[in-house]
């Protein structure tokens, strides 16, 4: 794949790429599972040893590529704390669901890093992929308890970046979102031993 890897060693860039790839598949999965776009616009693809669905909509594809290339840069520079995929009602602009992808930064393999003069990780890629697969399966299983979205919905991705981060072109500041009467579900996390990704879904609990 695309991550720069030589003999079980993952660089910062590679780790960021793994994270962004995970984000791509996770966001697409959520969009498919929550029925935001018609299922016929999705195409099945094998990844992490399971079949995942990717949107074929050119607008979504462009949006995700732009978002994830920028996010990758920020993750490499440790500027991002969290990415939130929010699902909101188009008519009322009310946030119904929030998928938080918390990014934490870890030290990796210190001995190997000293040797290579670069922070690297020696975690096995297979194991990382297995961890990601577990999270993906959990995301697919959320449909059983998340409330039904019975209105016209759309999504947005908010990046919680460090305050010293510059705002690039085509980006803008947004307001942090809040969900009233929120219910949080912590999913499994995975780590490249350079970055740790936690996935939390919070949704509006309706009686």
């Amino acid at each position: 794949m695309s991550q720069q890897q030589t003999k079980n060693c993952i660089t910062l860039r590679g780790s960021a790429q793994i994270l962004c790839e995970y984000l791509k598949f996770a966001i697409n999965s959520v969009l498919f599972q929550r029925g935001l776009y018609p299922p016929e616009t999705f195409k099945a693809e094998q990844q992490y040893g399971i079949t995942l669905l990717l949107s074929e909509d050119p607008l979504i594809k462009d949006f995700l590529t732009n978002l994830l290339t920028q996010s990758e840069e920020w993750i490499v520079n440790k500027k991002v704390d969290k990415l939130s995929l929010i699902i909101l009602n188009v008519a009322t602009k009310e946030v119904l669901e929030c998928w938080d992808f918390n990014v934490q930064y870890e030290d990796g393999d210190v001995a190997l890093s000293k040797e290579k003069n670069e922070t690297v990780s020696s975690k096995d890629l297979k194991k990382i992929k297995q961890e990601i697969r577990d999270v993906m399966l959990q995301i697919a299983a959320t449909i059983s308890y998340l409330p039904f979205l019975d209105c016209r919905c759309s999504f947005d991705v908010l990046v919680h970046a460090r305050p010293d981060c510059d705002i690039p072109e085509k980006w803008a500041e947004a307001k942090p979102v809040e969900i009233t009467n929120a219910q949080n579900v912590q999913l499994k996390s995975f780590s490249t031993s350079l970055n740790k990704m936690e996935t939390v879904v919070s949704y509006k609990l309706t009686d």
Binding site: D156, H160, W171
Partner: peptide, 10 residues
Amino acid sequence: TKVLHMADNP
């Protein structure tokens, strides 16, 4: 943290 998002989001 700063909350950023793309201007032309879905």
